[in-house]
Each structure stands twice: as structure tokens, then as C-alpha cells.
């Protein structure tokens, strides 16, 4: 555990809190991609299958991971529930149209072809890493289409980008401090995932320095 990793995890939790806050305070889910949220739920459910056979009391880190894993699954399921049931009327159904099969199918292929060990859980785990790296795309697509979003929604995406950036720093840190730390699947997928936020960040900071809502050209 290092400060980059801890900061990344906390920022990830914070981003979900910001999203929930946006939904609760505005009582609407406009501008939020249900497709991205469902992909995240899929990512967490497939990545954290190990919850079923890991003793959370094995170590401090296992307990830490278990708490976060349950939190991520539960909170993303809750957001999907809010979007599909409670605030269904406000959902941007006409604009949230990115075809997720273009993301799921390649992620399945990549997971099947490139994984660490030839076991069911390892292949599903690798799929979840590839899936997460592109899961934000429907949200960015919706953003492009609507052109302007509420502040909290843009803060949410910015926090997610920040979480990814901190994870990259965490890997650099671990690469130099831990012997044999060679996690190439995470590195490649994580770099792609972080790079996807580059364009968003550009406009985010451009609009924030002018004190405006996020507006895309």
C-alpha cells in the first residue's frame, strides 16, 4: 500500500459519492450514461468474483480490499437502480446510444486471448480489466452529444480521471519499490483508460478556469 494507491481508491469512492449526490440533489439523471454505469456494475461483478472464496480476515489488506469491493458493487448497483427505476423519466434515453457491444465483444476477446493464467477466474478477471479501461466511452459520447453538463456530473468524470492518474503513479511507485512487479495487463489497460480522459480534462479545466459549466465545442 502506498499513498498513490490509497488516494486513488479514496478518489474512486468520492467520485461515486459525487455522482450519487448529483442524482439526489437534482432529482434527475440527465447527462449520466446508464450504459457506462451498467458496464461498471459488470466490471465490478466480474473482477470481484474472488469475494466468494477469499477470507476477508486473512490480512489487513484483504479486509481493506473486501470492504472496497463490496462498496463498489453495492454503490454501482444502487446508481443503476436509481437510473432505471426511481428517476427513469429524467434519463437521457435519446442521447445515451453508444453501442456497448463494440466494447464488450473486444473486451471478451482480449480477456480470452491475453491473461496471466489459463483459469476461468483469471480470464474473467482479465476481461474486467479490459472492460473497465473503455467503460467510460458511452459517458464521454453522451457528453459530446449533449455538449453541456451539470457541474457535479463533470466533477464526477474529473474525479474518475484523477483516480486513474493516481493508479498510474501507484504502478510507477511499485515498479521501483517492489521486486518482480510486472503487471503488464494492468499497465496497458490502465494507460489506455487514463488517456481517454485527456480530451475531457482539457475542456474541464478550460471551463473551470472561466468558472463556467462544462461546455464542449
Amino acid at each position: 500500500m502506498n499513498l498513490f494507491r490509497l488516494g486513488g481508491d479514496l478518489l474512486h469512492v468520492f467520485s461515486i459519492f459525487v455522482l450519487t449526490l448529483k442524482i439526489k440533489t437534482s432529482k434527475n439523471v440527465a447527462g449520466i450514461s446508464l450504459r457506462t454505469q451498467q458496464l461498471y456494475l459488470l466490471v465490478f461483478c466480474t473482477r470481484y468474483l474472488d469475494l466468494l472464496f477469499t477470507n476477508p480476515f486473512r490480512s489487513g489488506l484483504t479486509m481493506y480490499n473486501t470492504v472496497f469491493k463490496i462498496l463498489f458493487i453495492a454503490s454501482s448497483a444502487y446508481i443503476v437502480y436509481l437510473m432505471r427505476k426511481k428517476y427513469k423519466q429524467t434519463y437521457s434515453v435519446k442521447d445515451d446510444t453508444f453501442r456497448v457491444e463494440f466494447l464488450i465483444v473486444p473486451a471478451c476477446l482480449a480477456g480470452t486471448l491475453f491473461h496471466y493464467r489459463n483459469t476461468f477466474f483469471e480470464i474473467v478477471w482479465a476481461f474486467s480489466i479490459y472492460m473497465e479501461s473503455v467503460a467510460i466511452i458511452p459517458q464521454l459520447y453522451l457528453l459530446q452529444k449533449t455538449g453541456e453538463v451539470e457541474n457535479l456530473t463533470s466533477h464526477y468524470i474529473a474525479c474518475l480521471g484523477g483516480y486513474r492518474a493516481l493508479y498510474l503513479l501507484n504502478w510507477v511507485w511499485r515498479f521501483f519499490t517492489e521486486p518482480r512487479y510486472r503487471h503488464w495487463i494492468e499497465w496497458i489497460a490502465g494507460t489506455i483508460q487514463t488517456a481517454l480522459y485527456a480530451d475531457f480534462f482539457y475542456y474541464y479545466f478550460l471551463n473551470k478556469t472561466k468558472g463556467q459549466k462544462l461546455k464542449l465545442p
Binding site: 494507491r5 474512486h12 489488506l61 480490499n65 472496497f68 469491493k69 493508479y167 501507484n170 503487471h183 494492468e186
Partner: peptide
């Protein structure tokens, strides 16, 4: 083994 790629991250 499991520890080698123990997936100790989230």
C-alpha cells in the same frame, strides 16, 4: 501461483 499475480489492487 496466486501470490505472483495476487490481484491485490482494486
Amino acid at each position: 501461483n496466486q501470490q505472483q499475480h495476487g490481484h491485490d489492487e482494486l
